[in-house]
């Protein structure tokens, strides 16, 4: 169930914070369901260090163009995707998965943030 992109990013949270960035995670389920899943996966809901945002009717996912595009565990879920938004609120990087395993390693958004900070 878990690909691990979030866990890897959480493991390098200090690097994101040092670059002045906030990680936000979006899951296309109700908050109740996200909590149920986190407990099922052995995670402590109050010890995530990264906001797990609930998008239960997929509106934010649809706005970002990722809703209902991956079949997983008998549901149509988000296409896995990562966006970097700069301090001015402009999208500077996007990665939309073309397969289940197609996720950027944390190095990729981190390098985008470094470049943005230096520009």
């Amino acid at each position: 169930m878990c690909h691990g992109q979030v866990a890897r990013s959480r493991g390098r949270l200090n690097e994101f914070e040092d670059l002045g960035a906030r990680l936000l995670i979006v899951d296309p389920h109700e908050s109740l369901r996200v909590k149920h899943f986190l407990r099922f996966a052995g995670a402590r809901v109050d010890d995530l260090h990264v906001p797990m945002l609930a998008d239960p009717v997929h509106t934010v996912s649809a706005t970002y163009g990722v809703a209902f595009q991956m079949r997983i565990h008998a549901e149509w879920s988000n296409r896995p995707a990562t966006f970097v938004i700069d301090r001015a609120g402009i999208v500077r990087y996007e990665h939309r998965a073309k397969s289940f395993d197609d996720r950027p390693k944390p190095d990729e958004p981190l390098s985008v943030l470094k470049r943005l900070n230096n520009s």
Binding site: R22, P28, T82, F83
Partner: peptide
């Protein structure tokens, strides 16, 4: 004006 944001869309990933 304060922070950059890294926005990650997932399914149940922890």
């Amino acid at each position: 004006g304060k922070k950059s944001v890294v926005l990650i869309f997932i399914y149940g990933d922890t």
